[in-house]
């Protein structure tokens, strides 16, 4: 519920930002004559790309990290974990049940946010084809043009791809959740570390560090917005993200299995 409300608020802010940006940059108010993005290029699909990109990197991870943290640390601090452990269920089964439930939540979150963005974009901003240019979002190396139906199909592919990215963030939150006794601390640390890694991944003087941070690959689904999808690259990044996720889950499982429930 909170996630849905926050997503709606975020999309409203994006909508306001989108319109003010378009107005300022296309009506001569801006003295930079050749900076050029106009209203015909901005449409509902462009809006969806922008809002989903920022939402995926900055809003959804917060909810996913909170969910992941609540699963073990939350039950530990509420002491309800003890209620579960006095039942004939192994810790492994309990752990993977929680992972599965949270992974489902991440899929719903990504799908819901995407549908909401598309809905707001297409009905509030407008229909049309999707044109992407190289830019600060670094969506593409060159101009990409996708027809509306092509773009909608690509968004359908982005849903599972983005969900996979969220799973890695989720697995990271699980790792911290298995180590910490308080859900609030686990969520705060997960979100803080995620944001630090996200910034480090995006700043060029950390380029030696980038490859070992999972946050460097999270927006790999941008490749699905190319006219010719670079499947090898998309596959490589998806493999890296899943690899990171499994490492986090293995460590989280070990910690959870061996720790004492004091």
């Amino acid at each position: 519920m909170l996630a849905a409300l926050s997503s709606a608020l975020f999309l409203t802010l994006m909508l306001v930002g989108f319109y003010t940006y378009a107005r300022n940059h296309t009506r001569g108010a801006f003295d930079f004559g050749y900076t050029f993005e106009n209203e015909s290029y901005f449409n509902g699909l462009t809006f969806t790309v922008y809002s989903f990109y920022f939402g995926f990197l900055l809003v959804l991870p917060i909810f996913v990290a909170t969910e992941g943290s609540a699963q073990i640390a939350g039950e530990t601090s509420d002491r309800t974990l003890g209620l579960l452990l006095i039942r004939p269920i192994t810790k492994s089964r309990l752990f993977f049940t929680k992972v599965a439930v949270s992974a489902g939540y991440a899929v719903c979150l990504a799908g819901g946010f995407l549908v909401l963005s598309l809905g707001v974009g297409l009905f509030a901003v407008g229909w049309g084809d999707l044109d992407l240019y190289p830019g600060v979002l670094q969506m593409t190396d060159r101009h990409q043009h996708l027809s509306q139906s092509q773009a909608l199909l690509r968004f359908a592919l982005i849903w599972p791809a983005a969900s996979l990215g969220l799973w890695t963030t989720l697995a990271f939150a699980f790792l911290l959740s298995a180590w910490m006794k308080s859900a609030v601390n686990a969520a705060a640390v997960s979100i803080s570390l995620y944001l630090v890694m996200h910034v480090v991944s995006g700043v060029h003087f950390f380029e030696e560090l980038r490859p070992i941070l999972f946050t460097s690959y999270l927006a790999y689904w941008r490749g699905l917005l190319q006219e010719d999808v670079p499947w090898t690259q998309v596959g490589r990044d998806a493999a890296k993200l899943l690899g990171f996720a499994f490492v986090f889950l293995a460590l989280a499982h070990r910690r959870f299995r061996l720790r004492e429930e004091l």
Binding site: R79, G82, L85, I86, R87, P88, I89, T90, K91
Partner: peptide
Amino acid sequence: RAEVMRDARFAF
């Protein structure tokens, strides 16, 4: 633990 909990029940 899981086997023990088939027939034992704890309330803390």
